[in-house]
Amino acid sequence: MNRTISTQNLLLPEKPDLTQAARYMGVHKMDTATRALLEGWAPSLWEAARPRGAWVCLPLEELSHWTLGKDLERHFQNCTHAMLAALTLGVEVDRLIRRLSATELAGALAVDALASALVEQVANAWEKDRRRELEGEGLYLTGRFGPGYGDSSLALQGDLCRVLDTSRKMGLSLTPTLLLAPTKSTTALLGISNIPVRGTLAGCGNCKLKEICEYRKRGTTCGVEGME
């Protein structure tokens, strides 16, 4: 398995994910006003976004000195390799949201939500491509596990960005408080195995957000609602 970092510009999906974007705005049942607002702002986002990704496959033992946490270790069960990935929509999206925050707050909120949904869309498409490639080699890929999810530490994000050289390869960096900048970005760890694997969701038991989780309050989980 090749262990050099791949970097690529990624395609924008044809359509925005309005349902997910509405959900990010706190609207759980789409209404015409929300739909109109989102549809009105999507073209500006599509113009600003320049999705780019970097990823690499490493033997799991190279992560042996990382603090993965129990949930991530379980996620990697039966895997030989880890795929580390970082994706970003680029700095122009943040700039658009900032500009709108001063002049068109509803627009800022709409673009913010659409962009969060777009990160997911781009990541899903990226993951599908990687899965197809690996399956061509007779290998299997788990789902994406994000640093900070379950009992894992957000600090993993620092290791991941350094390995992927994200600042140089895609203009993505971390703030000292471990936030990604540009903000509309994501990082993930996936397991690779030669037997079919799906990875394991962390579940709510260890989750740091379990007390305040909006999903739980609605009687569901992010595993059901957010990752479908």
């Binding site: 600042s167 960096s173 971390l174 703030t175 000292p176 936030l179 900048a181």
Partner: peptide, 14 residues
């Protein structure tokens, strides 16, 4: 001298 590896404000916090 290369970049500091963090984004400057307003995109980042540096």
């Amino acid at each position: 001298i290369g970049p500091l590896g963090e984004l400057l404000e307003p995109a980042g916090s540096l």
